[in-house]
C-alpha cells in the first residue's frame, strides 16, 4: 500500500521514457522520409504547375482536370488489365507448379524452391534486359524463328520473322509474368505444402475426374496462398516501370512510365503527384480495406513467419509445422 505512488507515476514515466528512446530513431526516420514525402505527394497534386518546372502557389484542381483527358484513362486502363492479366497468368501457372513441388519427396523440396529462386538472384534489370536480347529483331528467338521458317515455309506464317516481338503489350505481359511468377509460386507452394493430399485421394476414390479434383479440392484448399499470391503479384505489377519501359513501346505505357515522364523529363511535378496519388490509392485500397475490416494488429506470427519462410527455401521446406518454444505455465 505504502508503495503505490512509487509504482504509479514515477515508474510509468521511466517506462515510457525507455520506449520513446528506443522507438524515436526509426520512427523519426520513417516520418521524415516516408510520411512527409507521401503527404507531400498528396498535397502537390492540388498545386498549380509553375512554368519553370517548379510548383506554383495556391491550390487548384487543374491537374485533376487534365488527368481526365482521354490519354490518361487509356493508360490507367492498360495498367489495370496488364496487371490483372499478369496476376491471373502467374497464378494459373503457379498452381500446378506448387502442386508438383508439394507432391515431390520432402528432401527434394528445398532444392526445388532453390531452383525457383536462383535465377532471381540476378538483378531485376538484367533479367528484363535478357528478354530484350531474346525478343530483339536480331535476337535469339527471331533468328531461331527465321531458321524454322525457312525450313517449313509458309505453314508457320504467324511465326514469320517479321513479327514484331518487342515493344508491344504482349512483350510487357510476357516479361511481367517472367519476373513476378516466383512471387506467385512461393506462397502457393507454402500453402500447398500444408495441404492434406489425402483429400485428393478421397475425391478420386469417390469418382471425381482429375480436372475437377484440382479445381474443386486443391485450389480451395490453398485459398490462403492464392490470396497472398494475388497481392504479391498485383501490387508490384500495378507499379511497374522498368518492364514497360524496356520491352514495351509507346502503345504499352503504364502509369509508372507516365509518372516518371511527368516528373523528370517534363518537370511537371503536380502532374506526377496526381498520378502517384492515384496509384497509391489503387495499391493501398485492397489491403487498407482488409485492415479496416479486421482492425487487427498485424503483429501475429503470420507476417514475419512468412517473410522468414520466403527468405529461405529450407525454411519453406520446414514450414509444415511451426516450431514453438517451451510453453510457460
Amino acid at each position: 500500500m505504502q508503495s503505490a505512488p512509487r509504482t504509479g507515476l514515477l515508474r510509468r514515466i521511466r517506462h515510457h521514457g525507455a520506449e520513446l528512446l528506443i522507438t524515436a530513431p526509426s520512427m523519426a526516420w520513417m516520418t521524415v522520409f516516408f510520411v512527409v514525402p507521401t503527404v507531400l505527394v498528396l498535397l502537390l497534386a492540388f498545386r498549380p504547375t509553375a512554368l519553370d518546372g517548379g510548383v506554383g502557389r495556391g491550390w487548384t484542381l487543374q491537374t485533376w482536370r487534365t488527368i481526365s483527358n482521354p490519354n490518361y484513362p487509356s493508360i490507367v486502363w492498360r495498367t489495370i488489365w496488364l496487371s490483372f492479366a499478369a496476376t491471373a497468368l502467374s497464378i494459373g501457372i503457379g498452381l500446378p507448379c506448387a502442386f508438383a513441388m508439394a507432391r515431390i519427396k520432402a528432401q527434394w523440396r528445398s532444392t526445388l524452391v532453390g531452383l525457383v529462386i536462383l535465377p532471381f538472384w540476378t538483378s531485376f534489370l538484367i533479367r528484363v534486359f535478357a528478354w530484350r536480347l531474346l525478343l530483339h529483331p536480331e535476337g535469339t528467338i527471331s533468328v531461331f524463328l527465321h531458321r524454322t521458317w525457312s525450313v517449313f515455309g509458309w505453314q508457320f506464317r504467324f511465326l514469320a520473322p517479321e513479327t514484331t516481338l518487342l515493344y508491344n503489350s504482349f512483350a510487357v505481359l510476357l516479361v511481367m509474368v517472367y519476373t513476378y511468377l516466383p512471387f506467385a509460386i512461393l506462397p502457393l507452394y507454402a500453402a500447398a505444402e500444408k495441404f492434406d493430399f489425402s483429400l485428393l485421394e478421397a475425391a478420386f476414390d469417390l469418382g471425381a475426374r482429375p480436372w475437377r479434383v484440382f479445381w474443386r479440392i486443391f485450389v480451395p484448399g490453398v485459398r490462403a496462398g492464392v490470396v497472398s499470391a494475388v497481392m504479391m503479384v498485383l501490387i508490384p505489377a500495378l507499379g511497374s516501370y522498368v518492364v514497360p519501359d524496356l520491352v514495351g513501346g509507346p502503345n504499352s505505357e503504364m502509369v509508372g512510365n507516365k509518372i516518371y515522364q511527368r516528373a523528370l523529363p517534363d518537370r511537371n511535378l503536380p502532374h506526377a503527384s496526381a498520378l502517384s496519388a492515384l496509384l497509391m490509392l489503387g495499391v493501398l485500397l485492397p489491403p487498407g480495406l482488409a485492415w479496416l475490416a479486421t482492425r487487427k494488429r498485424h503483429l501475429g506470427a503470420t507476417d514475419t513467419d512468412v517473410v522468414a519462410a520466403m527468405n529461405s527455401p529450407s525454411a519453406l521446406g520446414n514450414s509444415g509445422g511451426r516450431r514453438r518454444n517451451g510453453v510457460r505455465a
Binding site: I117, F120, W121, T122, S123, F124, Y180, P182, F183, L186, P187, A224, V227, S228, A229, V230, M231, M232, I235, P236, P287, A290, W291, A293, T294, K296, H298, G300, T302, D303, T304, D305, V306, V307, A308, A309, M310, N311, S312, S314, A315, N318, R322, R323
Partner: peptide, 30 residues
C-alpha cells in the same frame, strides 16, 4: 533451426517475396 530462415543474402526476388509475406499477412487477417 527455425531461425535459419533469413540467413542468406537475398535477391530482388526475395525482396518481393518479403513484400508478399506482408501482404499475405494482411490478407490473412481479412
Amino acid at each position: 533451426k527455425d531461425a535459419s530462415a533469413a540467413r542468406r543474402p537475398s535477391s530482388p526476388a526475395e525482396r518481393r517475396e518479403g513484400q508478399g509475406g506482408r501482404v499475405r499477412g494482411a490478407a490473412h487477417h481479412a
